[in-house]
């Protein structure tokens, strides 16, 4: 038998060797790894253009090994629109936090979905503004304590959290909307499957996809990494139920 070198597990080519600035237990690292693996598996690294948000993932160009641009806070979907319309055969994705996507960039994400832009959005919902040290986000849960809701989020003073998948699924322009989480190995695998489907849809010119990933911010939640995973599993997942909110093609991958 011929001897071949095979790896069961290795660093994706789509990730660099740089040490990330993410805190221990932060979901950003897991989600970066998933994106790296998916891009490798689809063989699209050399034609992918990523858009980094303003948030903890702003330095994504240090970790991804393909073309990356920064965008102003909340504007990645507009920037992605510009890139994708000019270079329709490239693979374009945005990586955005909840502050970026569901507060300052609400108009951009809604209209990009409504136009049905053929791009992929990875939406990292960690329920706080991680980078600016833990203020209330549009996805902060009722009762959740943050540095601007020190007694817990009160809907009558701070408003209600926004469910992005449910909102976007109402738009004709959106093709595929799914919410996943990363608190267990099966869920991480599900997240990878969803992100891979979103990129595959883009390759097949099927239109706008968004995968919301319920993620962790142990530092600002003031929880240990395992307590944070537990919080995702119980508190976050009950207000933001994982599942497919829209899939125009309902193709299993």
């Amino acid at each position: 038998m011929e001897k071949t070198k095979s790896y069961l597990y290795k660093k994706p080519e789509s990730l660099t060797d740089n040490v990330t600035s993410y805190c221990p237990g932060c979901g950003h690292g897991i989600i970066h790894r998933i994106i790296g693996e998916v891009i490798d598996e689809l063989g699209i690294r050399e034609k992918t253009i990523g858009i980094a948000p303003v948030g903890c993932a702003v330095t994504a160009y240090d970790y991804f090994n393909f073309d990356i641009t920064e965008a102003a806070h909340g504007r990645p979907p507009a920037v992605a629109t510009g890139i994708k319309r000019y270079l329709p055969d490239r693979i374009v994705f945005t990586y955005q936090g909840d502050g970026d996507l569901a507060a300052i960039g609400t108009a951009e994400i809604i209209h990009t979905a409504a136009r049905g832009e053929n791009i992929t959005v990875v939406f990292v919902n960690n329920g706080v503004y991680g980078m600016t040290k833990g203020q209330m986000a549009p996805t902060t849960l009722l009762g959740q304590k943050t540095t601007t809701t020190t007694n817990g989020r009160d809907p009558y003073r701070h408003g209600f959290p926004i469910r992005v998948c449910e909102l976007l699924a109402t738009l004709e322009g959106a093709t595929y909307i799914e919410r996943t989480k990363i608190d267990s190995v099966p869920d991480i695998i599900k997240t990878k499957r969803a992100i891979k489907k979103a990129f595959t849809y883009q390759i097949e010119n099927r239109g706008f996809s968004l995968i919301e990933v319920l993620s962790t911010c142990p530092t600002n939640w003031k929880k240990t990494p395992s307590e944070s995973m537990e919080w995702v599993r119980t508190e976050m997942a009950s207000f933001f139920p994982p599942g497919v909110y829209k899939d125009k093609y309902n193709v299993n991958t």
């Binding site: 253009i49 858009i51 641009t69 965008a71 102003a72 504007r75 507009a78 920037v79 992605a80 629109t81 510009g82 890139i83 994708k84 319309r85 000019y86 270079l87 490239r90 108009a107 951009e108 809604i110 209209h111």
Partner: peptide, 17 residues
Amino acid sequence: AESEVSAINMVFGAAVA
């Protein structure tokens, strides 16, 4: 675009490309 903010950021994207 949906606003001038989006329009200029689309231009930003096209210029990036």
